[in-house]
Structure formats: structure tokens, C-alpha cells
Design a protein around this nucleic acid. Structure first.
Lengths: 125, 125
DNA sequence: TATAGTGTAATAGTTAACTAGTACAATAGG
DNA sequence: CCTATTGTACTAGTTAACTATTACACTATA
């Protein structure tokens, strides 16, 4: 996995696991891969995996069962809230950054539409 | 100035200066504040300012004149390109992240519109 | 010419993130 | 009961980012 060297790896792993859960690659109630396997898959140290997981456990996104594995919560309320928070966070970051460049809301929507159009034209090649 | 502790400070300063230039707080051809003053204003060390500035100088956004100060380029071509690049970069980051959550382009535009609407309702209070 | 203001360089020390390695605790299965 | 698998904890060492400090080079001006 490729990481952005401007952001801590453990934090990017945390985001990655959020993503895998929210798109149901890791399903509610099921076991996620063992820490040692994740370390291999993501080519990082076990400690770095553990740091990401321990935060997810604190957040009750994951439930740790010693000797068994780490399991995705079955609390759909938590997961729905998580998705909402993440989407809103991403929107807020972009909104704030473009506002700082004195780009209006209307321009922002237009820029996004244009960007998507451009992307999708290229993706169809 | 408040910094995101997940991203290097020098990098955030660099982004800040981009912004100040693009919204004409620092105008083409004019001198930006001395490094020692910037260090005070942003409450960081001079070395950290210098690190950000040296990258901007490499990019020819700024021109350094020893003993005089650092000056914003007068090359509007470079500045226009810079703005385009930054806007596109911000759009791309959000697009990619929301796509990773299996959010469609149409949903994305809708989410942004909703978010803006919500923001502006609150901002008017 | 002396001094203040400017950019630049270099050293030393601190901290957070990461890696490597080892060990330990709990569980499952033969 | 033994062994493999799993999560967890701990120590040690490296590196990048940051701070603090000093020094130096160039410019303007009194």
C-alpha cells in the first residue's frame, strides 16, 4: 500500500480500515485479518497496525478478543454515524480550503461538476 | 496560527503562503514579511519558516533577495497555474476519498450542495 | 563607516513515528 | 496436554520535524 509521507502511517491505516468496513469488505460482526497478516499486506510493522487498531477499539468500531481476533462491531448505529462523520469531514476540508481561496459556493459546485466530468471522460478511455 | 498535528508545520505554512498570494494579501512583485516576523506571527521557529520559503523559492513562487527580503513573483502565468493546480488537487483528494466509500458522482455533488446549504444556514445565524 | 534589518547556514537537543525483535496471554484444535 | 494462532506489551534503535541558538552575508541608511 502506498502512503502519503505527509501523514502518519498509523493514521492512514485507520482511515483505510474505516473504508473497508464502510464498503462492507469487513462486515459487521466478522473477524478482520490478524494483525500480523495486515502488517504483511500493508508492508508496515505490527506495532504500527496495532496503533491504528487500538484507536479503532477505543472508538468501539472494532472489538478485540484476545486469542481470537479483532471483530467489526455489530452496532449499525455506530457504523452509520461513522459514515456520516467521515463524509462530512471530507466535505468540510475541501469547503474550507476552497473558501480560503475566496471561491464561492456556486463556483465550488461548478468546479466539482467540471472535475467529475473531466475525470469520467478520461476514465472511459 | 493553529496547525493540524497530523501534517508537518512547514508544509502547512507553505500552503498558507500559497493562499495569501492567491488572494492577493501578498501581491505580485511585493515583499512578504521578513522571516523573523513570520516566525513570530505564526509562532514557530525561523528555521521552520525558512524551510517552507526555500521550497517556494525553488518553485519560483517567491524570489529571494539577500539583505532585502522575499518577493512574490511577477510571473502571472506561474500564479494562475498555481491556483489551478491547488484547486484541482483539493477536488481530487475529496473525489478519491468519497469514491473509495462507493459514493457516486451524482451523490457527491448532492452531498456538497447539501453541506453548503447547511453551512450557510448556520453561518447566517 | 557604523548600525539595523534582512536572508541563510550550521550545530545541538527534543519528540513523535516507525521499525525490529522478543516475550507473554488467551484461544482453538488435534 | 501440546501446539499453532491470535492479541498485547515492552525495549531498543532510527529518522524526520521542530526548536533554540549562534553566526555570517548582503543591503539600506543615518
Amino acid at each position: 500500500m502506498k502512503f502519503d509521507d505527509k501523514v502518519p502511517i498509523y493514521y492512514q491505516i485507520k482511515q483505510y480500515i474505516y473504508q473497508e468496513i464502510l464498503i462492507n469488505h469487513f462486515q459487521p460482526g466478522t473477524k478482520i485479518p490478524p494483525v500480523r497478516q495486515l502488517a504483511i499486506d500493508l508492508t508496515v510493522n505490527v506495532n504500527t497496525i496495532q496503533r491504528a487498531l487500538s484507536e479503532l477499539i477505543d472508538e468501539e468500531i472494532l472489538i478485540s478478543k484476545r486469542g481470537k481476533g479483532n471483530f467489526v462491531t455489530t452496532d449499525l448505529q455506530i457504523l452509520n454515524q461513522l459514515k456520516e462523520n467521515i463524509v462530512e469531514e471530507k466535505l468540510e476540508i475541501m469547503y474550507t480550503q476552497l473558501k480560503n481561496l475566496q471561491i464561492s459556493s456556486d463556483e465550488m459546485v461548478q468546479y466539482l461538476s467540471d472535475y467529475i466530468k473531466k475525470r469520467e471522460e478520461n476514465d472511459h478511455e
